[in-house]
Design a protein around this nucleic acid. Structure first.
Length: 306
DNA sequence: GCACAGGGCCAAT
DNA sequence: ATTGGCCCTGTG
């Protein structure tokens, strides 16, 4: 992979200071990144542009098909370097990851060819914790709606973007969300997960769990910590570990991943979650998290093994 | 119209 | 170790 020049990859655009460009991109497809089930706070607004609500900011991002550049609106160069390059995982060498995984077998190679523009975002631990508590036994459009409801009720309003009428709200911090009653949470359509959200607020606010400390713990220790929260089981813990903490050795196994692994690697035979985990750990090793993301996107987009 | 599943987990057995 | 139930909504 070629070395990217920090000065070249971030430059002003058209003399307008609130627009910046990411260029010399490879393995970066904004549609695949956003539609691969790792992030819930985005909307497609035109054929090649999305609104994205992240890092307490509302941005618009556009990328033409197969283009090696993308334009981000409503930000600036210093935010690009401090915020968006880490967020979009720009400095990770996905060519190397894709190559190593593709060498294992033709199945994963095909999945990667289909979703080679996927990157795993670095999202906020608190937001991931609550979002994936909500995700259990829900479909993705419903998850997005619940998170939007909660943000409108309890988050602060964000600066608007030119040409976008709607108002958007930041995801509420623990202290703000802790003010919510179970009734208010249920009004956001989270259903039986309302007490789980309240338990997460309580444990984070009273210091039972210090989210920033999980970065330096081992994957196993961090997973055990997260699972002390009501409503956080192995699948949800692994999603938080992968999408917020960058723990790349986890293999979040939902119904899609279970079916695609059974279909591709167990001759269609039904196997236990434990067997899937053991397979992923020994076969994909420290790249299991990336493999999972490619396989999930490949299976779900193509409705494979339903 | 209604049965079913959705990026699962808890509690009871 | 296994299983029923769960809030709610989009899909067939």
């Amino acid at each position: 992979m070629e070395i990217m020049n920090k000065n070249e990859k971030s430059k002003g655009c058209g003399g307008m200071s609130n627009i910046v460009m990411l260029d010399q991109l490879n393995h970066f497809n904004i549609t695949q990144i956003l539609e691969s089930g790792q992030v819930f706070r985005f909307e497609k607004i035109t054929e090649h542009s999305y609104l994205l609500n992240a890092k307490q900011k509302l941005i618009k991002i556009t990328q033409q098909p197969d283009s090696s550049s993308a334009i981000i609106y409503n930000t600036n160069i210093s935010e690009l370097d401090e915020m968006w390059i880490p967020y979009f995982d720009i400095d990770t060498d996905y060519a190397n990851i894709a190559q190593k995984l593709s060498n294992k077998d033709e199945h994963i190679a095909k999945a990667i060819e289909f979703g080679k523009g996927i990157r795993i975002l670095h999202q906020d631990p608190w937001e991931m914790l609550i979002s994936f508590i909500i995700s259990q036994n829900k479909s993705i459009p419903h998850i997005k709606q619940c998170i939007k409801n909660i943000s409108q009720q309890f988050g602060f309003p964000l600066e608007q973007i030119n040409g976008v009428d709607q108002h958007y709200y930041a995801f509420p911090r623990p202290k703000e969300l802790s003010k919510a009653t179970e009734e208010q949470l249920r009004a956001c359509k989270v259903g039986f997960r309302a007490p789980y959200i309240m338990d997460a607020c309580r444990k984070v606010l009273n210091g039972d769990i210090i989210l920033n400390e999980l970065f330096i713990l081992s994957t196993e220790e961090a997973r055990a910590k997260l699972m002390t929260i009501k409503g956080v089981g192995p699948k949800i813990a692994d999603c938080i570990l992968l999408f917020a903490y960058g723990k790349q050795d986890v293999f979040p196994t939902d119904v899609w991943v279970k079916r695609v692994v059974e279909g591709l690697y167990f001759n269609g035979r039904e196997v236990s979650l434990k067997q899937i985990q053991e397979f992923a750990n020994s076969y994909f090793e420290d790249l299991a998290g990336y493999a999972q993301q490619y396989l999930f996107y490949y299976a779900r987009e193509n409705s494979l093994f339903k």
